[in-house]
Amino acid sequence: MDNSIVRAGYGRAAYRWREKRGTLKKAFAAAFPNTIPIFAGFWFLGMTYGIYMNVSGFPFWYPMLMSLTIFAGSMEFVAVNLLLGAFDPLQAFTMTLMINARHLFYGISMLDRYKGMGWKKFYLIFGMCDESFSINYTAEIPEGVDRGWFMFFVNLLNQFYWFFGSTLGGICGSFLRFDTEGLDFVMTAMFVVIFLEQWLKDTSHVSALLGLGISLLCRIAFGVDDFIIPAMIGILGVLTLIQKPLEEGGAAG
């Protein structure tokens, strides 16, 4: 083969690689500052989650594996309880669907933005946790920065923080010298905060009160171990029945 053609081919490849590296650098530099608050939060919550798993009797590779594959913080906390209970994959599956049902609506909001992202789209959907969604949905991506790589790095950094936090917690939990009794309240506290945030955001509190009320009734009627699924069916049923009045009242905007 003619040497000059080979050289020209190499030159083009090297040029393309340099260009690509420039794109990646720029996207990373734009994405990173957006993830700093999540950095603080995920290390703290991830560590707590890892320690919680550790003191619940799980070796560190459980939080490690779960942070990589599930990557949905609240679900991972609930999973600790599910793993400590009796083997019930159907309950685990339906609880996962209910707790993570909000992802459906993140997905609906992102349908357009993830268009034409190629293989990156798979990871963007796979790693769409609350925090990554909020950043990618609201961030103003600067002109000239590749949108796909920007969102990709937001997801990747967030998952990296969560992964290291929970793995570290899972390893360090066994070296803790203080009494961890009551640490499991971190999950309650987290959901109370999320509930409050949602409450402050909602104009109507009908559905929040229904969620509390129906769950409480089912807890009393069905007992500790069997109330979740009836409560879910009850919530979905009542919300479906009152769709018209609720929407006419403008509550569901």
Partner: peptide, 17 residues
């Protein structure tokens, strides 16, 4: 509609859980 009203109710359920 579900996207709008379900989150509030599910978080209530999780607090009770």
């Amino acid at each position: 509609y579900l996207g709008k009203v379900l989150p509030g109710a599910v978080f209530g359920l999780l607090v009770i859980y």
